[in-house]
Nucleic acid binder design. Structure first.
Length: 543
RNA sequence: GGGGCCGUAGCCAAGUGGCUAAGGCAAUGGAUUGCAAAUCCAUCACGCGUGGGUUCAACUCCCACCGGCCCCUCCA
């Protein structure tokens, strides 16, 4: 099954074909680093990290670029306010951003270019656009002339003449028409500035992406991504600049992720809420919100304090994977808490697997590509591969179990092939969990079945498949910190627990259930759960 | 006003022009357990916002309406 992706440009799913066979170039618009990252900033990177993982798994060599905007009006304002330099502020906020990405397991970014390091390349594009008649200098600024670009508006579905008809042509600033946007902005005294043929200044918002994408990935990139809010004007303008400059398609596929909304609060995270057609009231309100935002008391909290302080990053990532990337998503503590509950069983499975085989799930190897994975399946007692499902005769030992594994694997991969449908893919993961649990139970792998080496091997293979698929989504890569069976940060606590458990075991042996239950109830109040298993009692802390 | 999206069980959420409308949370019954926990099995939308239309057939396509959301403003 070929990979299909939904492109904003055509508003439909298309078969994925890259410029260069076997290679994928991917560009994601990164943050303007003027304040600590909030959870909304993490969505794009997590999604595109997963996309990269899947493309790499599918055999592509992927190059992924995420830019850092380190020069911008907001940055200048904020730096002034804090009495620091734009450079220092940008560096600090970039570190915060990267730190959060690491926490969420986003590790596939190949290049993180800073806008200020590509001034030269931006100026080359601007000069080229002026030369070709797509742009004009004006009082130290340079503007892109939208009307010169025949298909301007094609990405966001806008019609330029209608747009212009809708606005009163207030070209008070001398722009040829209101839709024209700045490629280069002349600087005022005290602002960061670079020399240019049009006088000292700094780049406009959109030009950096055109320049960096071109420099690092070429004239035509395969995938261009970003939040839905960037579709217009940012991506529309990027596209217009780049294609006018090179005469080639800028990106083959435009992928836009849905925005996060604050659960129950209405409105997206980190946004303003003013409407169009501002009345005086609304302007006042808008201004008030701006002030609150600057004071740091309004808008989204940083991801660290708002999210990671309460929830494990693994939970956050799974939550993001459980819905479709193009849909808007309500985000809040209640939702995360539910995700926590729903993935609990996976950690039980992982622990159960450890008891059954004595192996550590987290250090199991995973195949790097689908081809390798196919080979692994062929090598293991003839579980059918994707091409063989339904046609190959099943082995005599646990045919149902093995057939289920193979079918679930295909279900997962088919879902990913279909525009990276991680929501449907996670459903396959849940079913896989059930299959594995059943196998452990049926084969009594935590009890007498432990001596059954063949069954153990079969379980191992199934769990490896689980790990392989989870790894594509970037989930279950490490244990939940607050909630692991039979472990505590403190050796002292461990010893106490063992003491309690052995005392209780004696009571149970003597049928003194009142005492035994008293111990368990007391522990429950301390958020500790005991599980009496045939092989012994285990304990777990609840969050 | 212009551009676009969404409305699937108590909640979250995939999906499809025609087979039993994924999965999770919650709930109920059962197996198991000294009792629990965990796990497994079963049940849980005759219907996919409302009303029309197209079609042999629509929840899936079209239209209208209701409700919610996003963008049009250097927000990921």
């Amino acid at each position: 099954m070929p990979i299909r992706v939904y492109s904003t440009l055509t508003r439909q799913k298309e078969e994925f074909q890259t410029v260069e066979p076997g290679k994928v170039s991917m560009y994601l618009c990164g943050p303007t680093v003027y304040k600590p990252a909030h959870i909304g900033h993490m969505v794009g990177p997590v999604i595109f990290d997963t996309i990269k993982r899947y493309l790499a798994y599918s055999g592509y060599q992927v190059t992924w670029v995420v830019n850092i905007t380190d020069v911008d009006d907001k940055l200048i304002v904020k730096a002034n306010e804090l009495g620091t330099t734009v450079e220092a502020l940008a560096r600090k906020m970039t570190e915060d951003y990267l730190d959060n990405l690491r926490t969420l397991g986003v590790d596939g970014i190949d290049h993180m270019p800073y806008a200020t390091q590509y001034i030269q390349e931006m100026q080359e594009i601007i000069a080229g656009l002026i030369e070709k008649g797509y742009a004009y200098p004006l009082n130290g600024d340079v503007y892109f002339e939208c009307t010169k670009d025949a298909d301007y508006g094609k990405l966001s579905g806008r019609n330029l003449t209608e747009m212009l008809a809708g606005t009163r042509a207030e070209t008070r600033d001398g722009k040829h028409n209101p839709a024209d946007f700045a490629l280069w902005k002349g600087s005022k005294p005290g602002e960061p500035a670079w020399d240019s043929p049009w006088g000292p200044g700094r780049p406009g918002w959109h030009i950096e992406c055109s320049a960096m994408a071109r420099k690092l990935l070429g004239d035509t990139i395969d995938i261009h991504g970003g939040g839905l809010d960037l579709m217009f004007p940012h991506h529309e303008n990027e596209l217009a600049q780049s294609e006018s400059c090179t005469g080639k398609p800028f990106a083959r596929y435009w992928l836009h992720n849905g925005l996060l909304r604050k659960s129950g609060a209405g409105g997206k995270i980190g946004g303003d809420h003013s409407r169009h057609g501002d009345s005086a009231d609304m302007l006042a309100e808008k201004q008030a919100q701006e002030e609150q935002k600057l004071a740091g008391s309004k808008g989204a909290e940083s991801v660290k304090t708002a999210v990671f302080a309460k929830f494990d990053p693994e939970t956050v990532r799974f939550f993001l994977m459980a819905t479709h990337y193009r849909s808007p998503v309500d985000f809040g503590d209640d939702r995360l808490a539910e995700t926590e509950k729903s993935i609990d069983g996976f950690y039980r499975l992982i622990e159960s697997f450890g008891r059954a085989t004595g192996k550590d799930f987290y250090s199991l190897p995973v195949p790097a590509t689908r081809t390798e994975s196919d080979a692994a399946f062929v090598g293991w007692d003839s579980v059918p591969t994707s091409a063989q499902v339904g046609t190959v005769s099943q082995p005599t030992v646990w045919p149902d179990y093995k057939a289920e594994l193979a079918a679930l694997r295909i279900r997962f991969l088919d879902a990913m092939d279909d525009d990276f449908n991680t929501g449907a893919a996670t459903a396959a993961l849940f079913d896989l969990r059930k299959t594995l649990n059943s196998f452990i139970t049926d084969q009594k792998l935590e009890g007498e079945g432990r001596s059954n080496a063949a069954a153990q091997a079969a379980l191992l293979r199934g769990v490896m498949l689980f790990k392989e698929l989870a790894n594509i989504l970037g989930v279950f890569r490490k244990p939940l910190e607050k909630k692991s069976a039979g472990r505590a940060d403190d050796e002292f606590v461990n010893s106490l627990m063992q003491l309690l458990i052995s005392l209780r075991a004696e009571a149970r042996k003597a049928k003194q259930f009142e005492i035994a239950d008293k111990v368990r109830k007391g522990l429950t109040e301390l958020k500790v759960t005991l599980e009496d298993r045939p092989e012994g009692t285990i304990w777990r802390r609840e969050t």
